[in-house]
């Protein structure tokens, strides 16, 4: 898969979580890339946390751009 296709997959995941109302609660970066934790639900008992790993540089830019200007 090309770098671009990988990016598009990662971008689609990011967009879909935002579209479903998830919010970013945590970001962790290390040698393996960027790990973004999304959470949904207001009540603690309903809360669902999902983590995605961003491998591409474009996606690591994209998530920050979304946080800066969109969310």
């Amino acid at each position: 898969m090309s770098e671009y296709e990988t990016f598009m997959e990662e971008k689609n995941k990011i967009d879909s979580y935002f579209d479903k109302g998830y919010q970013v609660i945590s970001i962790f970066e290390n040698l393996s890339g960027t790990f973004v934790d999304f959470v949904t639900g207001e009540e603690a008992i309903e809360r669902e946390v999902v983590q995605i790993q961003l491998l591409t540089a474009e996606a690591r830019k994209y998530i920050a751009t979304k946080l800066l200007f969109v969310s």
């Binding site: 970013v24 609660i25 945590s26 970001i27 962790f28 970066e29 830019k61 994209y62 998530i63 920050a64 751009t65 946080l67 800066l68 200007f69």
Partner: peptide, 18 residues
Amino acid sequence: LPSMTWNERQSRIASFMT
């Protein structure tokens, strides 16, 4: 997408770092 520098990126994601 709007302009975003590395410094702006790091500043924004810093609040999400655990």
